[in-house]
Design a protein around this nucleic acid. Structure first.
Length: 614
DNA sequence: CTGTCGTTTATTTTT
DNA sequence: TAAACGACAG
């Protein structure tokens, strides 16, 4: 077995360095599956990406043309990783003919082909969440309704939900005046998108499904084209994504889906892991393979995680096990308050450093972003270098958005939002002049020339310096953007990529010598030698907002499970105030419990006896 | 354009 | 309870 414990994989890498060909028995069964629908239930750390990549290679080696295959992921990062691994295996005869990408990029690609059906051109713009919000805000204003009654974000959310759940517009019968108005806004929103020659994120899936539902030739085209469909993180598909895939796979039935229902943590965004649980009922001749050997963590960590997730009712039964060593106990620490906890974690990290541990092997995970502040302060004080993951997406930065707006308008003159943004941004008519000039200029300039034109024409560096204290940082960001843009052959593909970028994509590469801080959501798929789970309090995880419904609490438990299974060797869990119920689900014999008193005098009477709730 | 005051809102966020 | 946002006056 080359998948060895404590491998030298980078901190953010997802798996040890495998050698192709060393599949476990279960992995081999999944990889060499003959045909027909197959669900691979891949537990945490069971070599999911490895199996998926080998499956793809297997299909290619058995004579399928790359153009007949689509492999769908949720993130660009996952897609890039798979593509890199596949390239190394030397099984793709023609470069560029194989689709490995996200649901959204697949949708964008199809809609480019089918733009006319929706009254768009191939140069359509992809509106992001912020664009959708401004569009709705404009509609609310124009409709002259009571602003306090119609919350723009709420309406955007409602529309997004309808699209994700494929709710038929014609089937909706709004009863109350409020509902009637919202539906009117929906209609206006759709009109506005069309007028702007734009699709929103959800359209990239929904409009493909609607097209295939209403046009037999179109459906037949894609069904025939794609004979093999592979889907990663299948537990996270939403209704429209699954509908799209189902339509495509109906003809050849070569649908390979892989994922872990125990790690479904995005239901608030429409992910529905019942698609995973019901797969065998949904496809007559479905095969199921379970990957239950964990190559990542110690026995203690796996045992503790299993005991926690066991308490969920809605799940596929599984028995995750490992050949790895027993390892150290789970270190659970009670602190008097959040600051005490942060200091305690910093102290513990210092101790690890003194023992020669590398900072990049350490991660601190929390439930909510707000929790990072206390931790940051403590790390600063102890002079421990750290890096926060997530936060603002690269392209959501103001300076980046300004430039993107200019390129968007150049490519798509109907993009009113970008025009507005540019006009508003600069005084003395600079914006207006720019907006006039762009569409003549665009065809004659390369992408990078266009960006440089924008910067020169608007005096953008001066603009930044006048307006922002951190102008230098922002100019650095622009330089990053120019570097990134230089690798694209045309503005259209650049815009598509940028629009579909996640918060961790496209940012300057991370530093290696630093502790990583992130939410438990962001940590999915990653692994670290040492994982600190902080703020494991009742009201934080499970979050107080989830306490009403069993399903929500079960999702919180899955999140806890995701957090715990990130640790390879050492798992540190801490809390203040009331310990999370999930802590009491860890068997006491696996835990080394410690209490820290007297951080401040007023907590001296703090006297909880154990982490176990009554 | 800029600053201030009142109001709102407060989990997670793969695209 | 703070902090972020938006409206509006100066």
């Amino acid at each position: 077995m080359t998948q060895k414990f404590n491998s030298q994989s980078p901190a953010t890498g997802t798996s040890p360095h495998y050698v192709a060909g060393s599949l476990s028995e279960a992995q081999e069964k999944a990889v060499k599956h003959k045909g027909g629908p197959i669900l691979v239930a891949a537990g945490a750390g069971s070599g999911k990406t490895f199996t998926l990549t080998n499956r793809l290679a297997h299909i290619l080696k058995n004579g399928a043309d790359p153009s007949q295959i689509i492999a769908i992921t949720f993130t660009n990062k996952a897609a890039d990783e798979m593509l890199n691994r596949i390239k190394k295996m030397n099984v793709v005869p023609r470069e560029g003919s194989l689709f490995i990408g996200t649901f959204h990029s697949l949708g964008a690609r199809i809609l480019k082909e089918e733009a006319a059906f929706w009254g768009r051109t191939a140069g359509f713009t992809i509106f992001d969440d912020e664009d959708s919000l401004s569009l709705i805000k404009g509609i609310i204003k124009a409709m002259n309704v009571a602003k306090d009654k119609y919350n723009a974000a709420g309406i955007v959310h409602a529309i997004s939900k309808m699209k994700n759940e494929l709710v038929e517009r014609a089937g909706i019968d709004p009863k109350t005046p409020y509902e009637q108005t919202v539906m009117m806004m929906y209609d206006r929103y759709e009109e506005a998108l069309k007028k702007n020659n734009a699709f929103d994120f959800d359209d990239l899936i929904e409009k493909v499904v609607r097209l295939c539902q209403s046009s037999a030739p179109a459906l037949n085209k894609y069904q025939t084209r794609w004979q093999h469909i592979l889907i990663d993180e299948f537990q996270d598909v939403n209704t429209s994504q699954y509908a799209m895939v189902k339509l495509f796979a109906e003809k050849h039935q070569n649908l390979f889906v892989i994922g872990d229902d125990a790690q479904s943590i995005y239901s608030f965004r429409g992910s529905d892991f019942r698609n995973f649980l019901n797969f065998e009922d949904d496809w007559d001749n479905a095969t199921t393979v379970k990957l239950e050997e964990n190559y990542r963590s110690t026995k203690n960590i796996i045992h503790a995680s299993n005991e926690v997730i066991k308490n969920n009712i809605q799940q596929k039964p599984k028995n995750l096990w490992t050949n790895n060593p027993q390892g150290s106990p789970i270190f659970v620490t009670a602190y008097p308050d959040g600051e005490g906890e942060a200091d305690g974690v910093a102290d513990r990290i210092m101790a690890l450093v003194r023992k020669g541990e590398q900072l990049e092997h350490i991660v601190i995970l929390y439930r909510t972003n707000a929790q990072s502040r206390a931790i940051e302060q403590a790390l600063l004080q102890s002079q421990i270098p750290y890096e926060i993951f997530g936060g603002l997406k690269f392209y959501e930065r103001k300076e980046i958005k300004d430039i993107i707006s200019a390129i968007r308008l150049a490519v798509n003159p109907n993009d009113e939002l970008s025009r507005e943004r540019l006009v508003k941004n600069f005084n003395k008519g600079i914006g207006a002049a720019l907006v006039e000039k762009l569409p003549e200029l665009a065809p004659s300039l390369s992408l990078v020339e266009m960006i440089n034109f924008f910067i020169a024409h608007t005096g953008y560096n001066d603009f930044l310096q006048k307006k922002f204290k951190n102008a230098q940082d922002r100019m650095d960001n622009i330089r990053e953007l120019v570097n990134f843009a230089a690798s694209f052959k045309d503005a259209k593909s650049f815009l598509e990529r940028v629009a579909l970028m996640a918060s961790t994509d496209g940012r300057p590469k991370m530093q290696s010598r630093s502790v990583k801080l992130m939410t438990m959501h962001m940590a999915k798929g990653l692994e670290f030698k040492h994982a600190f789970l902080v703020g494991i309090n009742e009201t934080l995880i499970p979050h107080e907002r989830s306490l009403g419904r069993t399903e929500d609490i079960e999702e919180e438990r899955r999140l806890m499970y995701v957090g715990m299974t990130r640790a390879k060797e050492h798992l540190y869990i801490s809390f203040f105030a009331l310990p999370s119920r999930f802590l009491s689900e860890i068997p006491p014999e696996l835990v080394e419990f410690k209490k820290v008193f007297n951080r401040r005098e007023r907590y001296s009477e703090w006297n909880e006896e154990s982490i176990y709730l009554d």
